[in-house]
């Protein structure tokens, strides 16, 4: 019994981003000792590793929802714009003096609604996911501006800003919240059959439907979950910077989220997904950003190493290249 389990662990898609993460850590270890230093200041842990977790939490939570959408064979380009809408709604409501509970419910509700619109356009109206979510990606920033009246909105509510800036057990709150969310999602998806249904719908939609699965409902649900995750990201981001900016909040974040999912070993063609892989994938992406920041790479150049990394990981995951490499080794040993 232990043999197959051992093998399945080796085959886990989460292995690649984890390997990448360790490799990057080694590079950092070689170049700067500071990277791994962890100090305690005012009872809080401080250091590059803490920064990675804290700054990576937005991408982490977006990638969680994105994993489900991609597993159904779809994609959601609107998450960045949904973040902006949610931030705008939350900030505006706070300014009007509403309670924190109402603000949070409203923010999450807006995210859910956005996800539902995407989901219905895709599952019911059968619009291609990339087109359907592009609509909200483009119009979302307009909606956010309408909400705020075209201005940025400052957030002064200390309870709200605690979400993005607070500490728990000396650690920043956002990554703790996000990790709890991952655990809850993992339990919910794997303890129920929802995870299986999502994978089946993405693997072969027709066959799933013919076997009696309500594939449209499953797909719609994935977009709703993605909208909710985008709402959480929007709340955390605006709470962190104490500001809602309709034009800038969550800009290009959908691409980071997609990258993280792909790095985590969930194929864009849909089917099998791996939340742990996504978690590592998002951390890997953030570590890279943080490394460049640490080594003072100019921000204009920063996307290049990111791109290189993505190409390498994608090549490692592709069966064709693996076979090619395998052939190379066999030839070499022969």
């Amino acid at each position: 019994m232990s043999e197959p389990r051992h093998r399945s662990w080796l085959k886990s898609p989460a292995l690649w981003p984890l390997a990448g993460l360790l490799l990057l850590a080694l590079v950092n270890l070689a170049f700067s000792k500071e990277f791994f230093s962890l100090t305690v200041r005012d009872g809080h842990y401080v250091g590059a590793m803490v920064d990675i977790f804290k700054n990576g939490s937005i991408c982490l939570v977006l990638a969680l929802g994105m994993t489900l959408v991609i597993a159904t064979g779809g994609i959601d380009l609107s998450v960045g714009s949904v973040m902006a809408i949610v931030a705008a709604v939350a900030a505006t409501l706070l300014q009007q003096g509403h309670s924190l509970a109402l603000v949070l419910v409203a923010g999450l509700g807006v995210g859910l609604l956005c996800g539902l619109v995407n989901g219905l356009l895709i599952s019911w109206a059968r619009i291609q996911p990339i087109v359907a979510t592009l609509v909200l990606m483009v119009s979302g920033r307009g909606i956010a501006q309408l909400v705020t009246g075209g201005f940025q909105v400052r957030i002064d509510d200390t309870h709200y800003t605690f979400l993005g800036n607070g500490f728990l057990f000396g650690l920043p709150l956002p990554p703790i919240l996000v990790t709890v969310l991952y655990l809850a999602a993992w339990l919910g998806l794997r303890r129920s059959a929802t995870g299986l249904f999502i994978e089946a719908a993405g693997d072969n939609e027709t066959a799933s439907r013919f076997a009696g699965l309500a594939t449209a409902r499953v797909k719609c649900l994935a977009y709703v979950a993605c909208g909710l995750c985008a709402a959480v990201a929007g709340i955390l981001a605006s709470s962190d910077i104490k500001n809602a900016n309709p034009l800038h909040d969550g800009l290009n974040m959908e691409l980071d989220a997609i990258f993280a999912v792909v790095l985590g070993g969930t194929a864009l063609s849909g089917g099998r997904f791996n939340l742990l892989g996504t978690y590592f994938g998002a951390l890997l992406l953030q570590t890279l950003t943080e490394t460049m920041y640490y080594d003072q790479v100019r921000s204009q150049v920063a996307p290049v190493p990111k791109a290189v990394l993505i190409v390498i990981v994608c090549l490692l995951q592709s069966e064709t290249t693996r076979r090619w490499f395998g052939g190379l080794f066999r030839r070499a040993s022969a």
Partner: peptide, 17 residues
Amino acid sequence: ILPNLSVRENIIFALQA
């Protein structure tokens, strides 16, 4: 078939659905 899913998942799928 659900090609990338396991034999187990393929067998239980309709019942689970």
